[in-house]
């Protein structure tokens, strides 16, 4: 077993999401010590899980939290409709073209946008991940035999700052 990692494969619902958050908070403190950005790191996982729960076509996901050297890697795989999978990929590709200033401005625009959808989809979570210090955000999307799409989101964040 690799040290400093958490793997979960199975059903994702609101109760499991909140239990994972509690567990992550505890292992983050145990593995990383007390840091100013501990919640920011955990919030990256929250956003990915949130996105997976909101858009998955079944209840199953695969979730991985791993500390590798000086980086935190969070990976979530879920199944989604073609529309949601392609939108996620497009949003992340657009994000990767943005400068930090443009990300901050887009985040501001999204907050000020009066539209407030129950299902999300405006990309605020993706912008939030970038604002929390992620340096790499990859999305892999491919069509499965049953017609649904498999989405794999991988976010890498450096752990070199913010120790108390």
């Amino acid at each position: 077993m690799k040290p400093n990692s958490l793997d979960y494969v199975g059903v994702l619902n609101s109760e499991i999401r909140v239990q994972l958050l509690d567990f992550l908070s505890a292992i983050a403190i145990a593995h990383l010590g007390k840091r100013k950005d501990l919640r920011k790191l955990c919030s990256i996982a929250i956003e990915l899980l949130d996105n997976a729960q909101r858009h998955c076509t079944d209840d199953d996901i695969s979730f991985k939290w791993q500390i590798e050297g000086d980086s935190l890697i969070v990976k979530v795989e879920n199944h989604a409709s073609e529309e949601d999978a392609k939108r996620l990929k497009e949003q992340v590709e657009a994000l990767r073209q943005m400068t930090p200033t443009e990300i901050t401005e887009e985040f501001r625009k999204q907050l000020l946008n009066p539209e407030f959808n129950a299902r999300g989809g405006a990309g605020l979570g993706i912008l939030q991940i970038a604002k929390k210090g992620a340096t790499s955000f990859e999305v892999d999307v491919h069509k499965m035999i049953n017609g649904a799409y498999a989405c794999t989101s991988t976010v890498e964040t450096p752990l070199t700052q913010s120790q108390l």
Binding site: I46, E47, G120, G125, Q128
Partner: peptide, 10 residues
Amino acid sequence: PYFNSGSNKG
């Protein structure tokens, strides 16, 4: 202590 992006908007 924690809020997701949907809550941030709320």
